[in-house]
Design a protein around this nucleic acid. Structure first.
Lengths: 164, 164
DNA sequence: AGCTTAACGCGAAGAAGTTGCGTCTCGGTC
DNA sequence: GACCGAGACGCAACTTCTTCGCGTTAAGCT
């Protein structure tokens, strides 16, 4: 069935309940889709270990870019952003990325590597990717993501203001 | 009247036409709001001249952050993003920022200053601001925007890959 | 066992979205 | 100057979604 032809009565029928139940629980189709989107955007597991901070970040960024820039990914992002005016679901999406980056950072620190702040990673790697996905149809090639990672690694790797 | 209580029949009545006319022309309330949002997000005029590239960028970034992070601004951004699956309106918003940055850059070049690439400015200054506005409720203080500007000015100011 | 609370189904009423048809106006053409 | 085609709009009927009150059921607690 069509994605944008989705309606609350259809979902209710599929779920075996009446539409009023769905309306009472979620109040709106957008809120429901927003919750669904957040669930779909949740990362599967811990980011893969490639042996070095740079390799981990590059691999993660490439995968992130691919998933988020796909048609399905962009739909989920838009749904997540739209359905919740309180930004709760948007924050959740950002937290997913932050958690993954945090895990990569902890692992790198275990290897003795200098690790950039998560906030810095969000600003330098995630934000440009997301901005381009949402606002500009551009190529998010591995070369581009690698450049972003190189930027953040070439910079002050241990900022004086740790977050935790 | 309530912002989210807006409906096509209301708009049609205000415009003195029948709802079917509005539906035929825009097809959807979201598309209409998207077009309205883009119009509202259009910058008023050329960015102010403060005598130096750094001052111009800082002033522009602060104003941009204030406007976009306000309740009205975020609503417009969301409307613009949401109403157009083809991303045409989102691209338009990004182009607005790019044009402003371009103007600042041209002016700085006229002064003999080294000017960062517009793409770089978008990645380093605009993207983090927009990402935080959309995904993270954080303070977009002047200190933060200044730090973003300092980052982009401290970096390679004339990348080897000019865009135009 | 009896009570409270929350959730659901049901059905009606209201509002929004959709469509086909007729009319009008604006161009261009003979 | 009259005719004709295209596009846009109003009108109205129809479908679908959305909301709401009421009665019922099931779960948890005393």
């Amino acid at each position: 069935m069509g994605r944008d032809a989705l309606t609350v009565p259809l979902i209710a029928a599929r779920a075996g309940v009446t539409p009023s139940t769905v309306y009472r629980r979620w109040g709106d189709l957008r809120e429901l889709l927003s919750d669904v989107a957040v669930e779909r955007l949740r990362p599967d597991g811990a980011p893969a270990d490639h042996g070095s901070l740079r390799a981990d970040l590059e691999a993660w960024a490439v995968q992130f870019a691919e998933e988020m820039s796909s048609t399905a990914g962009r739909t989920y992002i838009r749904d997540a952003l739209l359905g919740d005016p309180e930004q709760g679901n948007a924050v959740r999406c950002s937290d997913y990325a932050a958690e993954q980056l945090k895990a990569i950072g902890v692992r790198a620190a275990g290897r003795g590597e200098a690790v950039p702040d998560v906030e810095t990673l969000l600003d330098v790697v995630v934000a440009p990717l997301m901005y381009r996905i949402l606002f500009r149809p551009s190529d998010l090639s591995a070369a581009y993501t690698d450049r972003l990672v190189a930027t953040v690694l070439g910079r002050s790797s241990a900022p004086p203001t740790p977050k935790s």
